[in-house]
Structure formats: C-alpha cells, structure tokens
C-alpha cells in the first residue's frame, strides 16, 4: 500500500538504484542497435570512398557530399521528390477532407461508410502500388483502356509526367483513409452551436465551411501536413519500387529511392551513405521548422 505522500509525489521513487536502469534497458538497447549504430555507420561510411571491388577504402572527409551535391542526377532527384511529396500530401488531404465532409452529411449508415473508407489503410504500400500499376498498365490496365478510349495517349512506361501522376495517385490513395479518419474526428470536434450561430449570422453552407469549419480544423490539418509530408518523403519507397522503379529515365526517382539505387544496385556505398545523411538532416530540419513556426499559427483555445 502506498501512503498519501507517495501517491501525491509526481515522480515514482524506486527503492532500488539499479532497477530503473534495468527497466529502460530493453528500449535503450533497441534504439542503440537499430538507430544510433546504423546512423553512426552511415555517417562514417559517408566519409569513405571504396574501390569498385570493395577491397580497400579511403577516408575522404566531405568529398562524397561535395560530389553528390554537384551531381545533376541528385539535383533532379530533389526536384522530383519535392514535386512528388507536395502533390501527394495535397491530393491525399484534399480528397480526404472532401470525403469526410460528405460522410458527415450522411444520415443513415454513417458507420458503414466510415468503415469502408478506412479499409484502404490496411493495404501494404507495395500492394497498393501493384494495384494501381495493373489498373493503369498501358497494355492490360482496365483504366488505361478507358483513358485511351477518351483520346488520351496514356503511357506511364514512356511518359515521365504520366508516371508521376500514377505514382502520386497510388501514394495518395493509400494515405486518404488515414487522413479521412482524422478529418472526421476533427469535424466532429467543431461545436455544433458555432455552425448554427454562423447560419443565423447569414453564412451559407460554403461560406460556413471556409470561414468557420476550415479554420477550426487547422490543428488537424497541420498535424496531417506533417504526417503526410513525412509519409511522402520516406514511406513511399515500396510504391516507387513497385510502380515505376524510378523510371522512365529518372523522372520518378525520389531521394529515398536514389539512396537504394546508388547503394544497393550500383554499389556506390560512399555516395549512398552521404545521401542518407543529407536525408536525415532534411528530416530533422523539416520537423523543427514545422513545429516551431507553423504550429504557432494554429493554436487557440
């Protein structure tokens, strides 16, 4: 039994000095083995240059970084990544918001609609990619048949823009369910009396949405913006690999995919490691910027 005083102290006090360390040890071990160790290895590797046969390596300081940042293929990959991430985040969020607003209006079978909308989230990225690949395959895809019969020369295997559209569709489709779930919750949290007050104040439905509901959804939208950007940047490897493999040419080669391609396919380990270190810096910077500057604008009580 705890006495009153112990219950009220905010910290848990362990009688044994070793026990707390033992309790956090598994978590620490996992973080060390699966994050800090490989991250350290990558950092070390990014400053090494190996000969083509992997027989010897040389410490070159930041030469790999200089080389990578001057490489036109890498700069192209940055452009591709920015375009892909922005398009994916915007499409995934816009469609999810539209669906959530529609689902709110459904009176009967609301739960059924929601369940059906959430299902795609359970699909693995690579499988989602395959699904879209087959649907839009120029020779066997049923949807590309429809597109072609509409007079569109659909060919994601040769046309870079088509490949990008296909990739964004597949990546966004996968994320819509997740966003939908959060937008539904966000919409439910908007007090009904505010909407009623706005109606009495003469605002029609569209106006109410943009002047009352959408601003009040800002915390949800910001959260999803962070999650979707991170998803598009780093979790879409499976989709890129399954749908386009970075092609045609290098038109859909995102930064993450290029790390894999250079490191594991072309075996240029130093370059690949340098790229992954740059990616790590980008993530840290992005998160810091988002939380420090954007979040400030969306908080009110």
């Amino acid at each position: 039994m705890l006495d009153e005083e112990t219950k009220l102290t905010p910290r848990v006090v362990f009688p044994n000095k070793v026990l707390p360390y033992l309790l956090v040890a598994p978590q620490l071990a996992i973080t060390l083995v699966f994050f800090y160790w490989p991250a350290g290895q990558a950092l070390y590797q990014s400053m090494l240059r190996q000969d083509p046969f992997g027989l010897k390596s040389k410490f070159v300081w930041f030469a790999n970084f200089r080389k990578v940042l001057a490489d036109p293929a890498y700069l192209n990959s940055i452009k591709v990544t920015v375009a892909f991430s922005l398009a994916t985040a915007i499409v995934a969020m816009a469609v999810a918001l539209l669906l959530a607003v529609m689902a709110e209006k459904v009176v009967r079978g609301k739960a059924l609609y929601r369940t059906l909308m959430i299902w795609p989230y359970a699909v693995a990225p690579a499988i989602a990619g395959m699904l879209w690949l087959f649907l839009f395959n120029p020779s066997i895809g049923s949807l590309s048949y429809v597109l072609r019969s509409l007079g569109i020369a659909w060919d994601p295997l040769l046309n870079g823009s088509h490949a990008m559209i296909l990739l964004v569709s597949a990546a966004a489709w996968k994320q819509i369910s997740y966003n939908f779930l959060f937008f539904v919750a966000g919409l439910q949290a908007v007090p009904k009396t505010l909407i009623e007050a706005a109606a009495i104040d003469g605002a029609r439905e569209t106006k109410r949405f943009w002047t009352i509901i959408f601003p009040l959804l800002a915390p949800t939208t910001f959260f999803l913006l962070v999650v979707n950007t991170v998803y598009a940047l780093f979790d879409t490897f499976g989709i890129v690999h399954a749908v386009t493999g970075g092609g045609p040419g290098k038109t859909t080669e995102t930064l993450v995919y290029k790390v894999y391609n250079d490191g594991f396919v072309n075996l240029i380990l130093g370059d690949s490691a340098a790229q992954s270190v740059i990616l790590m810096v980008i993530v840290i910077a992005l998160t810091a910027i988002q939380f420090r500057y954007v979040e400030r604008k969306v908080h009110y009580g």
Partner: peptide, 8 residues
Amino acid sequence: QNYALYPH
C-alpha cells in the same frame, strides 16, 4: 447558452 463565439 455557451455564447458560441468564433474562437479563431
């Protein structure tokens, strides 16, 4: 009753 002021 809860005033329903627009918080933003």
